[in-house]
Amino acid sequence: MAYVTYGELAPDGRNAILATHGYTASHLMLAHGAGTAEGSWAPLIGPGKPLDTDKYFIVCSNMLGSSYGTTGPGSIDPASGVAYGADYPDITLTDIVEVQHRLLSRLGVRHLKCVVGPSFGGFQALQWALDHPDWVDSIGVVVSAPYLPASEYSSLESLQAELATNAQWNNGRCASLDTMVETLEQMRLSTMDTYGMSAVLAARGFDAEECAARCRLMSATWAREFNPYSLLVLMKAALAFDVRDRLDEIRADVLYVVADTDKLFPPDPTVQTAMGRTRGRRPMHYVQMRTDFGHSASGAGHALWSESLRDLLHHA
Rank of each mutant, 00 (worst) to 15 (best):
Y6L: 08
E8Y: 02
A10G: 07
I17D: 14
T20R: 04
T20N: 12
H21I: 04
T24V: 02
T24E: 01
T24P: 09
S26M: 06
H27T: 10
M29D: 13
L30H: 13
L30N: 09
A31K: 09
A34L: 12
W41I: 06
P43R: 01
L44A: 08
G46W: 04
G46K: 06
P47C: 04
P47S: 01
K49T: 02
P50V: 13
K55Q: 11
Y56M: 09
C60K: 04
L64C: 08
S67C: 09
Y68Q: 01
G69Y: 00
P73S: 00
G74E: 04
D77N: 03
V82P: 00
Y84I: 01
T92K: 08
L93V: 09
L93S: 12
V97Y: 08
V97S: 15
R102Q: 11
L107T: 04
V109D: 06
V116G: 05
Q124R: 10
A125G: 08
Q127T: 13
Q127G: 06
D131H: 14
V141P: 04
V143H: 09
Y153D: 06
S158Y: 15
A161P: 10
E162W: 15
A164D: 10
T165K: 13
N166W: 05
Q168A: 08
W169L: 04
R173L: 01
A175I: 02
E182I: 12
T183C: 13
D193H: 07
T194H: 12
G196I: 03
M197E: 05
S198D: 05
V200N: 01
A202G: 01
A203Q: 01
R204Y: 06
A208N: 01
E209V: 03
E210C: 01
A212Q: 11
R214K: 14
L217F: 07
L217G: 04
A220Y: 13
A220H: 08
W222E: 09
W222S: 10
A223Q: 06
P228E: 00
S230Q: 00
A240I: 06
R244I: 02
R244E: 03
L247S: 03
D248S: 05
A252S: 15
V254G: 05
L255S: 14
D260R: 05
D260Q: 15
D260I: 08
T261D: 10
L264R: 15
L264H: 14
Q272P: 10
T273K: 08
T273H: 10
R277K: 07
G280F: 14
R281Y: 02
Y286L: 13
V287G: 11
Q288D: 12
M289R: 03
D292F: 14
F293L: 05
G299T: 03
G299A: 09
G301Q: 07
L304F: 14
S308H: 06
L309V: 12
H315P: 11
H315S: 14
A316N: 06
